[in-house]
Amino acid sequence: MNIFDFVAQYWPRLLAGTGMTVAQFFLATLLGVTVALVMGLMKLSPNRLVRATAVTYIEIFRGTSLLVQLYWIFFVLPLFGVSIDKFTAGYVAVGMNIGAYGAELVRGGILSVPKGQWEAALAINMSPAQRMRRVILPQALVNMLPPWGNLMIELLKGTALVSLISVADLMFETKQINGSTFLSAQAFGAALVTYYILARFMVTPFMRWLEAYMARKMGRA
């Protein structure tokens, strides 16, 4: 069976799987960006305890592998009375993992804002929250967007791991189809191409657009 016949026959399942992958991707992105912002800001806090919390979080999530974190969240957390379904466990693990990497980008982005901007905000009597929200973060965001593009690709690839706790994403559907038909080259080939299209023609162009859009908004185009 050639690849076109294969896709013609199995496209509903591949499409359903892709939908799940996209859902996991969006939810994990939402969580990851939030975690990255919070942890990145916490790592810059003047309070030592807050800083230590952020450092511990970042080192734990960057020091172990995503698969270990996923299994831990899915199989071990229930033993502590925190039961989460596989769908939630999937994007939570991916999001928290990416958040730890993102926190470093947020920190780097904030530190890259010139000192004069901090002083100017102070001089016009802004509160620390105003200063961060109106002056520092928007500029930091523009600086850190390019590395975030790579991180989003890593996130997309990371979502494939949720198939291992039986979330019916593209990877999972592909494995199921392979298991029942043994058309390995067609099944895995179709999935590879789908992931590639998602990464190369959706995620990357969107991040490029966002970079250009933000730069224009900041008057740097």
């Binding site: 690709i153 997309l156 979502t159 791991l161 990877m171 392979n178 590879l192 992931y195 990464a199």
Partner: peptide
């Protein structure tokens, strides 16, 4: 570019299962 933007997990399955088919 292709290999960098697709999941390693999928590539592992690909190498492992596609070989025997041929």
């Amino acid at each position: 570019e292709f290999i960098r933007s697709t999941p390693l997990l999928l590539q592992i399955f690909f190498v492992f299962y596609v070989g025997p088919q041929f």
